[in-house]
Amino acid sequence: NITNLCPFDEVFNATRFASVYAWNRKRISNCVADYSVLYNLAPFFTFKCYGVSPTKLNDLCFTNVYADSFVIRGDEVRQIAPGQTGNIADYNYKLPDDFTGCVIAWNSNKLDSKVSGNYNYLYRLFRKSNLKPFERDISTEIYQAGNKPCNGVAGFNCYFPLRSYSFRPTYGVGHQPYRVVVLSFELLHAPATVCGPKKST
């Protein structure tokens, strides 16, 4: 009989979030998941669920729940959905087409922007091929755009693959930082360890 609440607040209220290319994953298990708490945590810009209804979450049980978190800019949030393409979905964080879970995003301009520009958040701009779903690539190998090998040196047709967002508070919403948490629900042929409040007794 599990009584402890799932530590969603640790994920959502973390002081620092990860850069999207090096997104963070927390496995959540053996706890009571009260998803209604999430609705009250922040004024969400996005709370979209796929393959599951957000209002039914509190009635369900899962084997595992994974919470992935990272920062992107406002106009990239739409890429965090099944079947999307674009720089983020292709080279940084890719959801599977049959994704079961929820994408939660909110504006973090007050936390993640600086007047002089916050350069701490990076994204991958160049990659030889698209990522597979939930693949994480943290390599910093020089990207070869031409025929000549780069031998690890940046220059003509040889690019450092990561680029930094420079978040400034005066930017338009599309270029402001957004914190994203992706909850993916895993149903294996194994005992369910993460249940809503109704199912945990």
Rank of each mutant, 00 (worst) to 15 (best):
N151C: 08
T201E: 13
N157K: 02
V180A: 03
T85V: 11
Y165T: 00
P82Q: 02
L125T: 06
N4Y: 10
R127C: 01
D90K: 14
P177F: 02
I88S: 03
Y50C: 02
F99K: 02
L111Q: 14
R78G: 11
Y143C: 02
S164E: 05
Y123C: 08
N87Y: 15
A192P: 15
D75A: 15
F126Q: 03
V173K: 15
C49F: 05
T55M: 14
V37W: 15
I88H: 01
I72M: 03
G155R: 06
Y39V: 13
T193Q: 13
D137V: 04
F62G: 07
Y171R: 00
T55G: 14
C49N: 02
D90I: 05
P169Q: 05
Y66R: 07
N109A: 07
L125H: 06
N30P: 09
W106N: 01
V182P: 00
G172W: 03
L131M: 08
G152R: 10
N120T: 06
S166G: 15
L187V: 14
S184P: 03
L60Y: 14
V115L: 12
Y39L: 15
F160I: 11
K199A: 15
S164K: 08
H189T: 14
Y21D: 01
F134N: 10
R16T: 15
I138L: 14
Q79M: 06
R163C: 15
R27D: 09
A145D: 01
N24C: 09
N4V: 11
L187P: 09
K148Q: 13
E135L: 05
P7E: 12
N30M: 08
V173Y: 11
E141W: 07
I72K: 01
Q144H: 06
S200T: 15
V182S: 03
C195D: 07
G86M: 02
L188V: 13
T46K: 14
V20D: 00
R163K: 15
Y93D: 00
F47G: 07
T46W: 11
A89M: 05
F126V: 06
D137G: 03
Q176T: 01
Y165K: 01
Y123W: 11
S139Q: 09
P161V: 03
T201P: 14
K94L: 02
Y93N: 00
V32Y: 12
S36V: 06
F99Y: 07
